[in-house]
């Protein structure tokens, strides 16, 4: 039931995470959180998370995103969520997390804003 796949790519000083499948906590989610922390430790301050291919996020998945955002903000960095599906958008609205996360319709736009 976990996320099936994730990759990370660097665009200059920005790191983009591409997530796929279901974001349901689980070991893959901890891997993403761990990778974000590693990038932070090696100096990265700007992150984009592409959620366009994520079918569903549960509360543990949201926890991972919140954990990532907190780690990034603690070092004065920025994190933008890109390509939110309608389902995920409404989940962020329900949980009011839409007031906390910066979002962008495309990864390209996120790269210019981050």
């Amino acid at each position: 039931m976990g996320m099936t796949h994730h990759t990370a790519k660097e665009f200059g000083e920005v790191v983009v995470f591409y997530l796929k499948g279901k974001l349901m906590g689980g070991p893959e989610s901890s891997e993403v959180a761990e990778e974000i922390r590693n990038y932070i430790a090696s100096g990265t301050r700007k992150f984009v998370i592409d959620l366009g291919d994520v079918d569903w996020i549960n509360s543990s998945g949201l926890g991972m995103l919140i954990g990532g955002l907190t780690s990034v903000r603690n070092v004065g960095g920025t994190l933008i969520l890109a390509r939110l599906t309608e389902k995920i958008e409404s989940l962020l609205v329900i949980t009011k997390l839409s007031t906390v996360f910066e979002t962008c319709p495309t990864v390209e736009e996120a790269l210019t804003k981050v």
Binding site: L62, G63, I66, T70, I94, T95, K96, T99, V100
Partner: peptide, 11 residues
């Protein structure tokens, strides 16, 4: 009834 704020403990 949806007014309020973010989840508790997250921030």
């Amino acid at each position: 009834l949806s007014q309020g704020g973010v989840p508790i403990g997250a921030f």
